[in-house]
Design a binder for these strands. Structure first.
Lengths: 228, 228
DNA sequence: CGGCCCCAGATCGTATACAATCTTCGCCCA
DNA sequence: TGGGCGAAGATTGTATACGATCTGGGGCCG
């Protein structure tokens, strides 16, 4: 393994592959052959299988029996469901986080936002996107809700897939001010405002997607034509 | 395998083991040795490992490195988090379900409740508990929210563990009327009532748990003394 | 010339064998 | 007698080998 520590090879692969998906370096529909992944990370098929299974359970990867593993390509319905679930979980979680935010929390969030901006300025759109998603996970962590955090982590992951497929504009995410506004609400321990901001933020995100019912053929066609 | 179909051996084990946990036939803390499970279900270790990993991802099983798999023993904090997450997801989901409930849906729910009662009358408390949990999953299915349904399925599973550890009374669940009331709200397509009933139902459930902060030693002691 | 069938290559699913790690019991020593 | 050390047993982690299934191409038949 690249990572010297044995025994966590599978986790290492999960982390690296997940990051790659979040940064849109690997796109929905791409095939993840066990041999290929194993060769890339210098691991045996056993550990690769374990890693792919883990990612399948989080929804990032879809395993088709005797066909292989592919980066999940969410349907329009799944895309809607992901953001509907986020709409149920995140505003209330933001409220809880706002009640508990300390100065240390706020500082960490601010650093996070700063990193996000830096990535954007450096033209690393993928990295910025990944950080943008992690921001939402951090909020769940501040709320001290491990269970909900794991759900939000999954939903953010899938959102990344949705964005890869259905993002309307090619321009960078112009939503960083939304995160700033949230940070302000947290810093002032204002639960009502945090909840409302998060609700609006999620609505904004969905509104930038193109979730018209696309015939399944069109999507498949794109896959057929697209070179990986 | 008991199930003749090959290739789905792992799924079969997951289903059977999950059911056993839901029915409190296997209790939190119990060790699930790979060899033992494999022998019981007539499967190799490979497939057992896959099954246990799957259950670990849903939170029912905890895998400790080089120690083995155990039925998860949720802490008090985790127990609270499970029901807090349910409080975020389920009322709104019940509302959505109420808007979409058809006569067929209502009939299926009624049959489900009937089965629940039959199990209770037959003294099969475990089976009744399992069905009671499935009722909540059915609601998410009616709401046509696959993503949320999978979350609720996880939460219901973990709730079963929580109930096994923290249920206050030894008496059967006297909550069946709550499910009846929900069914009525669904049948009359009354979203407001459904949402309120679900909210109250979950509060009732939590109120029947004994979630005082128990010193970790006490729980460990029970494990040390209890014979599996 | 087009469509169907069959075979070869590739890929995944499972079992088995070996290595690493942990637990436990017994022994020795203070 | 109690505590610490060490080796044997048990259990899991990983790799490798074999079998099952699917995909794609070539040949045969209509």
């Amino acid at each position: 393994m690249i990572d010297g520590t044995v025994g966590e090879a599978a986790d290492s692969i999960v982390v690296q592959l997940t990051e790659a998906v979040h940064e849109h370096r690997v796109l929905p529909g791409m095939k993840l052959s066990e041999d290929e992944v194993g060769e890339i990370y210098g691991a045996g098929r056993t550990v690769v299988r374990k890693a792919l299974q883990t990612m399948a359970h989080s929804g990032l990867v879809t395993i088709e029996r005797n066909r292989g593993a592919f980066v999940t390509k969410p349907s329009v319905k799944e895309a809607r469901e992901v953001f509907e679930a986020r709409a149920l979980l995140e505003p209330q979680t933001a409220r809880a986080a706002a009640e508990r935010t300390t100065a240390a929390h706020a500082a960490a969030l601010e650093a996070h936002i700063h990193e996000e901006h830096a990535a954007l300025d450096a033209g690393e759109a993928g990295r910025a996107l990944k950080l943008s998603g992690l921001f939402h996970v951090e909020i769940a962590r501040i709320a001290d809700q491990a269970t909900i955090e794991s759900f939000i982590r999954q939903l953010v992951s899938r959102s990344s897939l949705v964005i890869a497929l259905y993002w309307r504009r090619r321009t960078a995410l112009c939503e960083s001010h939304a995160h700033h506004a949230l940070l302000d609400a947290f810093r002032r321990n204002n639960p009502d405002q945090a909840e409302e901001l998060m609700k609006g933020h999620l609505v904004d995100l969905v509104s930038q997607l193109d979730l018209r019912e696309i015939p399944e053929e069109t999507v498949s066609l794109r896959e057929a034509l697209g070179r990986c």
